[in-house]
């Protein structure tokens, strides 16, 4: 049994300690917003917050997050900043297949919470996410809007 705190609730999950958090979320808790993309910490599709910090969940052993607070998009989208991120992406049709977007929405919410952040830093965080559909231009536009609104200080256009 591993004790997990996810989205503000305590859970005991009956999985081996080395089980990646992603599978505990999807298999045991039925939380499907975090997606499997690579299982290699290379694409960002599985991103969640661990104690408020964005992290890929696909290789993170559940035993490593015991005692820490895990937050998935299911909870973020119910909170004002997460909802704002999701709504801004939806309003901009900022996706094609959409598969990369739950992970990106987690990162954007994390950035909005920490804003003001330098645009370079925001780009570095987004660079942990792959999108194969080429939805980048729209996602970047939304990111700029969100971060400008969050800081009151519009980030510089990327070079």
């Amino acid at each position: 049994m591993v004790e997990l705190s996810v989205n503000g609730r305590a859970h005991s999950v009956d999985v081996p300690e080395r089980t990646p958090l992603l599978w505990a979320l999807r298999d045991e808790l039925g939380l499907l917003a975090a997606k499997y993309g690579c299982g290699l910490e290379q694409c960002g599709a599985c991103s969640v917050l661990v104690d408020g910090v964005v992290q890929p969940s696909c290789r993170l052993p559940v035993s490593d997050v015991a005692g820490l607070e895990v937050t998935t998009l299911e909870a973020l989208r119910e909170q004002p900043d997460g909802r704002r991120v999701v709504e801004a992406l939806v309003a901009a049709n900022a996706g094609q297949c959409g598969y990369c977007l739950p992970g990106i929405a987690v990162t954007l919410t994390w950035l909005v919470r920490r804003s003001p952040v330098a645009w370079e830093e925001a780009l570095r965080a987004l660079d942990d996410h792959l999108c194969r559909c080429g939805s980048h231009p729209r996602i970047l536009r939304v990111a700029r809007q969100l971060l400008a609104a969050g800081s009151g200080d519009p980030p510089a256009e990327p070079a």
Partner: peptide
């Protein structure tokens, strides 16, 4: 118009084959 399918996908609602339970 807004894409009919994107709101569910972006917000992480089950939308893909691998999310079917």
């Amino acid at each position: 118009m807004r894409r009919l399918d994107l709101a569910a996908k972006i917000s992480g609602a089950p939308a893909y084959v691998a999310d079917l339970r």
